[in-house]
Design a protein around this nucleic acid. Structure first.
Lengths: 243, 243
DNA sequence: CGAGGGGTTGACGCCGATCAAAGCTGGTGG
DNA sequence: CCACCAGCTTTGATCGGCGTCAACCCCTCG
């Protein structure tokens, strides 16, 4: 329902350069933690490092690329687009997450469309490179498993918290989720737009807007600076648990 | 919202015996496919084989057991129970699936309550045994990954198909799901009860009942024998795609 | 035969989808 | 610097769908 804003022109990623995993200062947070530095010499296909602006489409559902993406910094939404054009966001993923892992099993194509929600700093890893590293270092397999388990936990939460109950409760859960996962050091977080909120909760844009506006009027949610907001966690939890 | 029917008395599993994985005729379908027969000699803790009647609780969310379950035959529902007693089913799993895998990562406790929906034939595998096998046979790790990827796919479908759209569409999707995954050789499948359908789709029992009754009246869904039903797949798909 | 549990159906009221219109805000160009 | 515009958000009005409460049916089991 409605086009992805900016999708048409924002795919201009900035290439930062060849990735140097052996010197990566955040590797312990990423897919390749625990691999020795030497693992990255003599890779068949190189790993590249990019920064994508918000709105960039990293990949589209059904397309046949062959890359896994490891998110260094930023937020990516995984979206399902139905034939009738309506869309549903099934997951948000942030720092340290890996996306496109379905290629390692099904091999055919991506299951979702991945779009940058914020500026996204990531490494683009050829599937063949993953396979090479996996065969040299079986431990990598464990980390892939952890990534999957983590995404499964997120998916379950999505069902339980964002897809269950009345609209007010779902939106409250959504704000709590943004607060928990995406707030900066100061505790403030970006309020994503209403269209995305609607696609995350499965309710209409106008209803989402009404709920958010209501929270703002009640000072449960208030602007901190620019598009950064803060919220009253206890009040939101109260709303969620009200039958 | 209502007790689990039969939950109170049905936990009397029948112990079939010590599992002999090396002689298991369906091992290629299970978690341990591709492991050599010798892998199962000298296990620290034994693997047991059970049959649970419908309604049995395999484990409860938050409990601290230390077993993975590999389903040989039957259907298990994974359920989340909220503090207010309402519940949501997040997944159905059938032949060849492994449940309780979260113990391999988080280690603390189960994330859901697992309940047998049909008679369930399964093997109960101590976590320590999985770890032993994993360290001896890194390949097992790949199969755990496949299980997780598969469950992630199911969870995504749950969000997209069962938690999105109008009640009629969700129930149609649910019937299609039962038909696809759980029909027998003759194409018939068990119609689960309305309470479970409601917990799967997040809509009220009465509304589910109305939709199912409507499908029956329209002959889109009809009794085959006992509690086995068949359905008109094309008609249901039509209902799903009607905006 | 009665009791009880699940399924179905009816009545009613509210929540939320939809259509419509009016703010707001940031960006652009005169 | 201001006017204008486009896109997003908010708000209003309306109506249908669905949750809720309640009654009734059907089947099974004691």
């Amino acid at each position: 329902m409605g086009n992805e804003s900016g999708q048409t022109f924002c795919t201009n990623a900035e290439w930062i350069g060849r990735a140097h995993c052996d010197k990566c200062h955040i590797r312990q947070l990423m897919l390749f933690s625990e691999l020795p530095d030497t693992a990255f010499h003599n890779l068949l296909h190189p790993i590249d490092h990019f920064i994508y602006p918000p709105g960039s489409v990293l990949y589209e559902a059904g397309s046949h690329k062959a890359f896994i993406y490891s998110i260094r910094r930023g937020i990516v939404k995984l979206k399902h687009i139905a034939e009738d054009g309506s869309s549903r966001i099934v997951r948000l993923l942030g720092n340290g997450a890996a996306i496109g892992l379905e290629l390692l099993d099904d091999a055919k194509s991506y299951h979702h469309t991945a779009i940058a929600l914020t500026p996204v700093d990531l490494c683009k890893i050829p599937v063949s490179t993953i396979r090479q590293l996996e065969s040299d270092h079986p431990k990598l397999c464990i980390h892939v498993g952890q990534q999957l388990q983590n995404q499964l936990n997120i998916a379950d939460q999505w069902i339980i918290a964002l897809s269950t109950g009345a609209a007010r409760q779902r939106v409250a859960q959504l704000v709590l989720l943004l607060e928990r996962f995406f707030s900066e050091d100061n505790g403030a977080f970006i309020l994503i737009n209403r269209e995305d909120m609607a696609a995350m909760t499965g309710i209409a844009i106008e209803t989402v807007s009404r709920m958010i506006a209501e929270f703002k009027r009640q000072k449960i949610l208030y602007r901190f600076k620019d598009n950064y907001y803060m919220c009253n966690v206890a009040a939101l939890q109260e709303i969620c648990s009200n039958s």
